[in-house]
Structures are given as structure tokens and as C-alpha cells.
Design a protein around this nucleic acid. Sequence first.
DNA 1: GTCTATAATTTGATAGAC
DNA 2: GTCTATCAAATTATAGAC
Lengths: 173, 173
Amino acid sequence: MANDGIRERILDAAERRAQRGGYNAFSFRELAADVGVKSSSVHYHFATKEALLQALVERYCARTRERLGEGAMLSPDEALRRLTAIFREALVDDNRMCLCGLLAAERDGLPPNVDAAVADYFRMILAYLRAALGDEEGRGTPEAVLATLEGALIVARSLCDHSIFERAVAQHC
Amino acid sequence: MANDGIRERILDAAERRAQRGGYNAFSFRELAADVGVKSSSVHYHFATKEALLQALVERYCARTRERLGEGAMLSPDEALRRLTAIFREALVDDNRMCLCGLLAAERDGLPPNVDAAVADYFRMILAYLRAALGDEEGRGTPEAVLATLEGALIVARSLCDHSIFERAVAQHC
DNA sequence: GTCTATAATTTGATAGAC
DNA sequence: GTCTATCAAATTATAGAC
């Protein structure tokens, strides 16, 4: 069950590329080459690019949700630690942006279904933070935490300096 | 001097489109149509798309610098107020992202010169904040302020809710 | 400095054999 | 389910007339 299934491997390749360059930075042919098939085979699994990206964002959102757990059952510190760790990993392991942060930035160039799936991701993160942080305002609002994490990845990647991420999120974690 | 010069009008059109969809979300033909010329005329003013975007980012950076003024000569409150106002305006007036925040997110799909110009923008903003905030840590680090502003635009635009921007940046301004 | 015309390439997508 | 072959459209970019 490790990682078989062409469909999942196509999504893996798309995820890697989309988190680095965005919606228009990769093609069916490139994904096909990554996986070792032809572009028509990619189209067999995903009829359109919109469908592929929608599935990708939904998988990304589901994985994040599983990894975070139930915000209401965690201490504020643990909840923030888990969320920050996910963003830090994207940066440190592979110099990636958050998939949904990047796509949301490109919003006006996205098909409607992708845009909607991205918005759902943000709603999920904000609900998690609201449940975890409760009424304490010492750590900042859920909106501030999420915004800082997204922006910290952008600036740290552009300046090729991971310590920028740490200085940006220090007050929240 | 209001806004004549085809060159400037091309940059205006590119700026509007790039701040909404990113580097690959517009073409020479679209810019030409916006301005009322043909795409070959756009190429007369900017030989390549890389050159056009580089000029665009440099103009964006220079305008922002002029509008901010010298950070060292401003109170921390006034410095933060000015910077926040620029980001808020992009969101409220026209539902735009920060040009450099969007391009930086797409980093791996950018030509090298554009990537470098975007990094210069972030260095400029961070230097401004360092000069303005000095050693006071009460408002957060320069990195945290910049990251929060960039991320706040992303999330607020995706969820079509300007109040998210205000809740995200409230602690800094 | 702008135009027409076009080259060269890439893209998302489809038809049909196997 | 993957392949070969191909299409129609769009893209960046150039040549040359005016």
C-alpha cells in the first residue's frame, strides 16, 4: 500500500510541481514523464487539468486534516506546533510552498472548482485554529497565525533563508 | 504627465493582470488588447516577457519605496501604518495580491532576473521595517510583519472576506 | 513606433489501435 | 489502461513593410 497506483503517483508528481511553480507551471506531458507514462494516460485518469487540480487540492486538504487531528482535543501549544511543523516541512524538506497558499495567490487564473477547493482548505485550517485556541488572544487570531505561516514560506523561499521562516512564526509557536 | 507613454500603460496592464493571476496568467496579446495596440508593439517596448516582468517588478519596488519614505525617520506606528495601507489598498480597491508576493510564490516558474528583482523587493521591505522598528520587539519581528501582510492578502482574497485581512494584521498595526 | 504575417513551440485534449 | 498519432488553439518571438 506504500505508493502504488498510477493515479496517486500522478498526483504526487503534480503536487511537487504545483507547490513550486503553480497551476500553469507544469503540463500533462511533464507529469507523464515524471511517472513514466504518456500524456494520454494521464488524461485517462484525469479528464481535464481542472479535475486533476481539484483532486489534488482535496487530497492535500484531507491529508492535512488527518495530520492535524481534532483541534478541540489538543492544547493550544500542541495544535500550533502541529500546524507549524507541516509548513516548516514543506520549506525545509523540499523548498516547497503550501499548495493552497500558492494556488490562492494565483486565484484569478484558476478554474472555479479549484478555487473553491482551495477556499475549503483555508476554512478547515481556520476552524481547526478556532477550536484549538478558544478565547485566548495571547497568541494572535487564527487569521494571523494562518497568514503568517503562508507569508513566511513565501518570503523565506524567495530570499533562500529558512531562518526567516523561524523569525516570522516565532511569536506564534 | 498623468499616464501617457505606451510603455507605462503596458506596465499598468501587466501589473493589473499579474497581481491577479501571476506570471503565466496573461499574454502579450492580452496586454496589447488592454492598451489598444498589437502584440508586436508590446515586443517593441519589451523584447521578452522576462524583461517586461523585470521592469514591472522594479517599478513596483521603486513606487513602494517612495510611498513608504525613510523608515528611520518615521515612528514605528507610522511606518507600520504606511506599509499596511499599501497592502490593504491592493485588496480593497481592486482585489489584488501583492505583485511580489504572488511572483515569489511562483518562484520556480520564474525567469532568473524576475526572481532576483522580487527578492530585492523583500530585502527593501525588511530593511525599512528594521529601521523603523529598531529594537522594540513588542510588535513582532520585521519578518513576522511582512509575512503576515502577504499571507493576509492570500487568505482574505481566497475567502472573499476583507475582514480576514484586518483580523490577521490587527496585532501589528 | 506600429502594423501584418508568420515561424516555432507548447499546451490541453481526443480518436482509435492494442 | 496504455499506447501512437494528431488536432486546435495559444504562446513567445521575429521579419519586414509602412
